[in-house]
């Protein structure tokens, strides 16, 4: 925890300083007689400075704590995100026990499918088709580890298709006719 705080603190310090230097390069409109206090870079510059300071405080705090600990310990409630340890949100009070690899796989499935759906499929396919495919495939993939028999698999896939059909029909209908918004 302390080590990741230290790294994030340094990243924030660097980011804050980057923002300050970018802000100082913004035009000041002195040529049109503008009041220097209205320069566009003023507020982002101040904010960048504050962020850099807060990042520095966070890094120093983590450093002091790491010294005190002797070495950065990894408490048991931590999980890994993208290869760096992180503090997990508190798990629900009652949950299904499962090996850590399952939740990582589930997370990566959802992330990939969502990105493919929202960033690619929505602009290439008709909205209802993209939605149908996304919902049906994602539900099936997420439930894959829980298929217990061929019959169970058939029921679950059938369910996924029904939900996907319902969403693909109702979302465009409601949004285009009731809320009068355009869909991608």
């Amino acid at each position: 925890m302390h080590r990741s705080d230290f790294v994030i603190g340094l990243i924030l310090l660097g980011f804050g300083m980057f923002v300050v230097s970018e802000s100082s390069g913004m035009p000041r409109y002195a040529n049109i007689g503008a009041n220097p206090v209205t320069a566009p870079g003023l507020v982002p510059g101040i904010l960048g400075g504050i962020l850099a300071f807060l990042g520095l405080v966070m890094a120093l705090r983590a450093l002091i704590a790491m010294r005190a600990d002797g070495r950065p310990a990894t408490p048991p409630d931590q999980i890994e995100v993208f290869g760096v340890e992180a503090k997990a949100d508190e798990p629900p009070p009652s949950y299904v026990p499962e090996p850590p690899a399952t939740s990582r796989k589930r997370f990566l499935t959802m992330l990939t499918m969502s990105l493919v759906f929202a960033a690619v499929a929505v602009s290439r396919l008709p909205f209802w088709l993209a939605t149908f495919l996304f919902v049906a495939i994602t539900i099936t993939l997420l439930e894959l580890p829980r298929f217990s028999s061929a019959r169970d698999a058939a029921v679950r896939i059938g369910f996924a298709l029904v939900i996907a059909g319902g969403v693909a029909w109702s979302v465009p209908y409601v949004f285009e006719n009731v809320f009068l918004v355009r869909l991608p």
Binding site: M110, A118, V122, V135, T138, L142, V171, R182, P184
Partner: peptide
């Protein structure tokens, strides 16, 4: 969640797009 979250993702996409298309 395996059934709910994909539906919410569709709603999130529509919701982000809806306001300004």
């Amino acid at each position: 969640p395996s059934r709910l979250m994909p539906i919410i993702m569709v709603l999130c996409t529509v919701g982000a797009f809806a306001i300004a298309s």
